[in-house]
Amino acid sequence: MNIAVTGLNNVDNPAPGVPVIRAIKESGEFSGRIIGLLYDTLEPGAYLPDVADISYVIPYPSAGLEHLFQRIAIIHEKEKIDVIIPTLDSELNGFIKLAPRLKELGIATYLPTADQLTLRAKDKLADFCKKFDIRVPKNILATSVQDLYKIQSHFEYPVVVKGIFYDAAVVNNLEEASTAFHKLSAKWGLPIIIQEFITGDEYNVCALGSGSEMIGAVAMKKMYITDKGKGWSGITIHDPSLLELSKKTITALQWKSGLELEFVKDKETNEYYLIEINPRFPAWVYLPAAAGQNLPYALLQLALGKTVRPFTTYDIGKMFIRYSWDWITDIKEFETITVHGELNHG
């Protein structure tokens, strides 16, 4: 069996590809090859011999879906790919569009529909939550700097300024909001989301939905957060109300694929607010696997049309501590991947 996975750029804002591969390989049931799909020749996962057996550079979906499809078709001829698991937010829409053509080639995917992807988008989240009676911070959308003047009439500072795909900044005044607006809109486009700031601790849930039910969900509290807002260590927790809320959200979305739900627990009221739904597994997806819910492997099974019984428990108090490590390689490997667009670890 040959499984292709994207998102091997586990840098300071790590993508989920490497932990997805790690979970699949350590399932104890997987035997096959892992094919890494890269958007950059310096994605670290490509160089690590225990991650992907072979990696290929592919074009960004924004360069044109036809280019991406043709490149995958060429790789497929050599590798006979059974399943592709895209792990990045920004490529999902493209892969959803390509899924029927990939299926014709014999490549399975396990993705939400375009409508589901839109429902949970950062600029649509508040509407979705209101419809299904899920607590969500108030928000407004900004398409120009002029819109930032509306903040004062809707909120009290601080507020959260969010990019449409990634990144967010907590700002304390109009000047900071304007700086964040320019930075985020230049990087990720418009609109920018202005969200009410809820004071409290952040909780994250990594989950998998089958479209009709929640297959698994593991809740985690970040214990150490980098200046980019990334959890660098975390611990699994058990709060039935949080898992119930996650189930309600996933069921309402009829979500099919992996996802991450981000909540803030209001310090005053102890109530959870859903602040974000990321449409793919998070970079900490190996923690659920280590705690007893191997969600990437379950997704793989579902993609192959197999039945997966929903998980019901996981280990509480299981921690992850992320670390960085300098991998040393020779320029020959960089040369190979740059010139030939692939790197083979055999």
């Binding site: 601790d201 909780y203 985690m220 509290k221 214990m223 975390g234 611990i235 699994t236 927790i237 058990h238 709060d239 627990k265 509480i316 108090g317």
Partner: peptide, 20 residues
């Protein structure tokens, strides 16, 4: 009821993930 107290005096509250 959910508080875990170890012999070392380390506390873990599983509902919130906090340790003391």
């Amino acid at each position: 009821s959910s508080l875990a107290l170890s012999e070392n005096g380390f506390l873990f509250l599983p509902t919130t993930g906090e340790t003391f």
